[in-house]
């Protein structure tokens, strides 16, 4: 091969060799910044890692109701966090909280997704702030139509690591069309009996055809609470009676400039 192609070939080949080598090496950090790796490692060993996931996290296993658990009758400090679906869910959940003696705090982060929550300390902060001992998560709607939902698995795992041993229920996203596998991925990642699958529900939607209406969100929470006794850690979840009325929970809105 004659110059100038030889020079070009060397430049491209050397650059690729550098990125390939680094993808199999230890991280290089400069202060707080870690140099990201080109995804050669993942591309070469992809299926093997996927197989590991499928072996340890059977999708059916996670959704299968656990053996009947004793209801934890201690009033809880409930924290519900998530995307824009959270607001309406929190309104109905607050009525359940009042009925059953729980306290409730909500953090509604518009347009957020698992990556945003995993890469910030927001969840950790609010869990500590409210001393949460039961967490509801409503995330996944903004990732419903990702082509490779499994790429979000590390973020989901990170969120679950932050929640650690605190009992939780991950309320699955309310599909408006068939998803590309986000629900399956979430179900695999969550502890058995801790993922509520919403995708089969028929929910009335707002004009945007995405968000369930307030009434539909209330029915959605009713459904979650009916399922609660079959969950991994059931808490008191009696349906609010007529005396409860409207409850205005403490809702933190994280949306920067959003309305």
């Amino acid at each position: 091969m004659k110059s100038p192609y030889a020079g070009l070939w060397l430049i491209v080949a050397l650059a690729l060799a550098m990125f390939l080598t680094y993808s199999f090496s230890q991280d290089i950090s400069l202060g707080s910044w870690t140099v990201k790796k080109a995804p050669f490692h993942d591309a070469l060993l992809a299926e093997e890692e996927a197989m590991e996931d499928s072996l340890s996290l059977d999708s059916l296993y996670a959704s299968t109701p656990v053996e009947e658990q004793t209801v934890d009758s201690v009033p809880k400090s409930i924290l519900i966090i998530g995307d824009s679906m959270t607001f309406n869910l929190a309104l109905r959940l607050a009525q359940y909280a009042k009925q059953n003696g729980h306290t409730i705090h909500a953090v509604n982060w518009d347009s957020s997704n698992t990556k945003i929550w995993a890469e910030s300390d927001t969840l950790e902060y609010f869990m500590k702030k409210y001393d949460a001992d039961f967490v509801f998560i409503s995330l996944g709607s903004n990732e419903l139509y990702f082509k490779k939902p499994e790429t979000r698995l590390p973020y989901v795992k990170r969120i679950l690591e932050v929640i650690d041993t605190v009992p939780y229920v991950w309320i699955g996203p309310p599909n408006w069309e068939e998803d590309t596998g986000v629900n399956d991925m979430l179900q695999r990642a969550c502890r058995r009996g801790s993922f509520f699958r919403t995708d089969g529900m028929k929910l009335a939607r707002k004009k945007d055809k995405i968000h369930p209406t307030r009434q539909a969100s209330a029915e959605w929470i009713d459904s979650v609470m009916r399922w609660m006794p079959a969950s991994a850690h059931p808490i008191l979840a009696d349906r609010p009676d007529s005396t409860v009325g409207r409850v205005n929970p403490n809702i933190v809105f994280l949306k920067a400039l959003n309305k």
Binding site: M1, K2, Y5, A6, W9, V12
Partner: peptide, 15 residues
């Protein structure tokens, strides 16, 4: 990245 891998194979033959 895959395109550049192909290009590394392509270039010498083309030359």
């Amino acid at each position: 990245g895959f395109f550049w891998l192909l290009f590394i194979l392509f270039l010498p033959v083309y030359a």
